[in-house]
Each structure stands twice: as structure tokens, then as C-alpha cells.
């Protein structure tokens, strides 16, 4: 751990700490939602530690709470988590070796991948990935446990606006990457595709539909290179 801390500069460390704190706060909303949906308090905590992928867990709880079957909840969760495959293709060098590799693989999620991608050198990528990942592994289940406690007190967590937190977190995380013009345009096209797909694809699939916009990235980057050469 110590060498990880030393590799990271103060600003980045603060950013990671704030992300972990925010994840803990989202965990609050998650635990509260789960308990008010009729789950035992330990369920969101256990799922938080074992699955460690917020959006799929919200989806899982939501589908069961809406009366859906566990199979449907499982399939939807797996679909949402299918994005971890391209994530793993994008950041494989940070995962470590041996038993650490198992843990490192488990720590792969939206936030850790974004932090790893945002760093320049491999040592920084690795340090950011692990620090953020271990922080989330701690904060997410602990937040869920506190939320489960809160859920037995607060009736409707939507009145606190907790559902707006998760998308705001992801948006704040990808904003720096979106400074790249080609990537921004591709992402917007992907968003449009995903939103259009919600009208006819089942829950979980529309996010993956955004990938159909990826060929545009090649076109946009080629155009940018052409413009730079001129």
C-alpha cells in the first residue's frame, strides 16, 4: 500500500478519496432502497462485496422488488456487467500477478477503469487503479450497511434525490475523457443509440447498443488527423 500512496500525487489521491466517499454515499442509497424493497439488511452488503458493480446491483434489486424473477434479475445484471469485458481489454496491465490478480480482477469497475485510463504512466495507472479499487471495496459494502440501517428510518429515499447520485458520479468521471473531440462525438452518438434502443430493447441491453457508435470513432479520429496534417 505504502508504495501505492507514494506514487500518487496529492491531488489525485484526494480525487480518489472523494470518489470512494461518493461511492459510500451511493451505497447508502443502495442499502436503503434494498431494505425498503423487502430485502434483509445483509443482502445488499453481501452482494455489494461479491458483485461490486453498482448499476447491476441496483438493477437486480429493482427487478426483484418489481416482482421479476431471480433469473430475469440475474440476466439483466450480467448484461449490464458485460461492459467489464471491454474494460478488461482496455486496462489489463494494472491487475498484478498470482493471487493479487484475482483481487485485482474483482476490483475492475467503472471508477477504477476511468482512473487508470486517465493516468499517463503504467506505475501511476496501477497505483490509481488499486487505491481506488480497495477504497471502493471498503466503502461500497459499508455504505450499503449504513443505508440498510437508514432505510428502516427514512420511508422514501427518492425524496432525498439519492437516485440522481449514480449518473452524476459516472458523468463527472468521464468528463475529462470527453475533452477529446472525436471521443465526445462518438459518445454522444452512442448515447443517442442507447436512448433510442430503450424503446424496444429489454432493460440492460440499451447500454450495450451504444457500442454500435464505435465505428464513428475511427472516422472522427481519421478526420482529425487529416485536419491536423493540413
Amino acid at each position: 500500500m505504502r508504495s501505492l500512496w507514494r506514487t500518487l500525487d496529492g491531488g489525485l489521491l484526494r480525487d480518489i478519496a472523494l470518489v470512494c466517499l461518493a461511492v459510500g454515499v451511493i451505497g447508502l442509497s443502495y442499502g436503503a432502497v434494498a431494505v425498503t424493497s423487502g430485502f434483509a439488511w445483509w443482502f445488499p452488503v453481501l452482494m455489494g462485496a461479491l458483485v461490486l458493480a453498482a448499476s447491476s446491483e441496483f438493477l437486480f434489486i429493482g427487478i426483484i422488488a418489481a416482482g421479476g424473477s431471480p433469473i430475469a434479475a440475474l440476466l439483466a445484471g450480467l448484461l449490464v456487467n458485460a461492459r467489464h469485458l471491454p474494460f478488461g481489454l482496455a486496462v489489463p496491465d494494472v491487475l498484478g500477478r498470482g493471487w493479487r490478480r484475482m483481487l485485482g480482477t474483482h476490483l475492475m469497475n467503472d471508477e477504477t477503469v476511468v482512473f487508470a485510463i486517465a493516468q499517463d504512466e503504467l506505475s501511476n495507472k496501477r497505483a490509481a487503479y488499486w487505491t481506488c479499487g480497495l477504497g471502493i471495496l471498503l466503502c461500497w459494502p459499508v455504505g450499503a450497511a449504513l443505508g440498510a440501517l437508514l432505510g428502516s428510518v427514512v420511508e422514501d429515499t427518492a425524496t432525498l434525490g439519492l437516485d440522481a447520485m449514480f449518473p452524476a458520479v459516472i458523468l463527472a468521471l468521464i468528463l475529462p475523457a470527453l475533452k477529446d473531440r472525436a471521443l465526445r462525438r462518438t459518445a454522444l452518438a452512442g448515447v443517442a443509440l442507447a436512448l433510442a434502443a430503450t424503446t424496444f430493447l429489454p432493460t440492460g441491453l440499451p447500454v450495450l447498443a451504444a457500442l454500435a457508435a464505435l465505428p464513428l470513432f475511427t472516422v472522427f479520429t481519421a478526420k482529425a488527423a487529416e485536419g491536423a496534417a493540413r
Binding site: P86, A90, I117, P167, A187, G190, P206, L214
Partner: peptide
């Protein structure tokens, strides 16, 4: 592709 997926998820 990771950024595009996250944007769509947002």
C-alpha cells in the same frame, strides 16, 4: 468503447 459505454450508462 469503455467511455462510450459509460456515457450511455449515464
Amino acid at each position: 468503447s469503455a467511455v462510450v459505454l459509460l456515457a450511455a450508462l449515464t
